[in-house]
Design a protein around this nucleic acid. Structure first.
Lengths: 243, 243
DNA sequence: AAGTGGTCTAGACCACCCG
DNA sequence: GGGTGGTCTAGACCACTTC
């Protein structure tokens, strides 16, 4: 249930675009029409359309209208802040998650994480290593660090399901934004063991620092993929800096 | 010269954040204060702040204010739609661009490009191959395809400078958005020749389809990087889909 | 209670596109 | 000239934070 009018309109329109009710290169109804259809003010309609535009669904053309630019082959937004379970669901993938390691550690044992999350040495962290398998083949190794203070009762069982769902639905926290870096790195021996034979022995590595809505950094994630099968898709707009 | 009030405010505030006048974790002035300072309505201030938020400069906190989350180590947005010359300028890099090849081709000779840009077989394209060198070392190979119809007078000399600047400043076209995909691919023999010895013989590959403001796809770009030196940085927000 | 950001409205004027 | 999107305003009510 979303009581915001502009979000409701956003969801209805984005849904219709994803379903193919509005296809690529087709026009959306004009703003004035949407104003009448939804019985809202024009600024409210415009808020919904702006969201569609920044998320890559439409392009607004001055004097003409809003045209759909989304097409399915955009392969879905790995570039969004989205959990593995959510991707799995939206793409109907048959991956299995296995928790390889689940422990409490101190921040100073993982200096890179300590720096990234801006922690003191004695801060306690959960360190969770999970593999994502298709059949017998390991495709992704995820290593996550979470603040113990934020979720005192994280368990291995929760980690097998969706930790994000736990944070948002059980803990009532709002996950908001992240910084990511993608690199290609030689695999470590541990990684080679988990992956099995891999050529080349390189991993596409995505490191993320994830923040809550109150701007607190609460998660550090390292996601390793077989390089040969990795694909990161992104939608971006040119900055409005130009004078 | 930007006559839009909200863009002026956006630029002034983002400038102050980049300069360090507002530092990470500091508060921006409240919306009401900004209304008074700039003598504009609150919605105009809010438009500027929204832009700062979607571009990763601030996080707005209900009941509290806007806090700066930008920090320099974000290493600048390779994830934006930005030309190599612009990156070079903003990071003070000492790269040299060399045009390795400059020719006119037909779309049907490059089927992948034809499909991506949605062209007919006989459409003419410029195909430009450029290397980006630091000293004698080739770090990036860029292959670009542009619509001949759009810029009948593209020359090798322009390609040595910034083609984006040419398109925007000379042709008056507005570059607007792009789809990118990042993959990890074996190098071809041509690429190995240009790069020289590389281990591993794999390239971090970024393919982009770039569109103008009228939604016309006009450029297909393939950017190959030495895998060992590649780093892609991204800022993303969690989607507002949640009910 | 006072201050902050979030949503929504009704209306205005403008620039752009197209027939 | 009529339709479309872009910008801006003044005011309203709400929810959240802080004291």
């Amino acid at each position: 249930m979303n009581r915001n009018k502009y979000r409701m309109i956003y969801q209805e329109l984005s849904g219709k675009i994803i379903n193919g009710e509005y296809k690529q290169n087709e026009q959306l109804p004009s703003e004035n029409l949407l104003v009448k259809q939804y019985s809202v003010s024009r600024e409210t309609v415009r808020k919904a359309l702006s969201l569609l535009q920044t998320n890559g669904f439409i392009q607004k053309l001055k004097g003409k209208g809003s045209v759909v630019i989304y097409n399915e082959s955009m392969n879905f937004p790995v570039s969004q802040l989205i959990s593995f379970e959510e991707i799995k669901e939206s793409l109907n993938m048959d991956y299995i998650t296995r928790v390889e390691s689940f422990e409490k550690v101190f921040a100073y044992e993982h200096p890179r994480v300590m720096t990234a999350l801006n922690l003191t040495e004695q801060t306690e962290l959960f360190r969770v290593v999970r593999t994502r398998r298709k059949g017998d083949k390991v495709n992704i190794i995820d290593t996550d660090y979470f603040l113990v203070d934020l979720m005192p009762v994280l368990t291995k069982e929760i980690a097998e399901q969706s930790i994000y769902s736990y944070i948002e639905n059980k803990l009532g926290q709002i996950i908001s934004f992240s910084n990511k870096a993608i690199t290609f790195e030689p695999m470590t021996e541990t990684e080679l063991e988990l992956f099995g034979e891999v050529t080349p022995p390189y991993a596409a590595t995505v490191r993320s620092i994830v923040h809550l809505a109150n701007a607190l950094p609460f998660q550090y994630n390292i996601s390793k993929h077989r390089a040969s099968e990795f694909k990161f898709v992104d939608f971006s707009r040119r900055a409005v800096n130009k004078k």
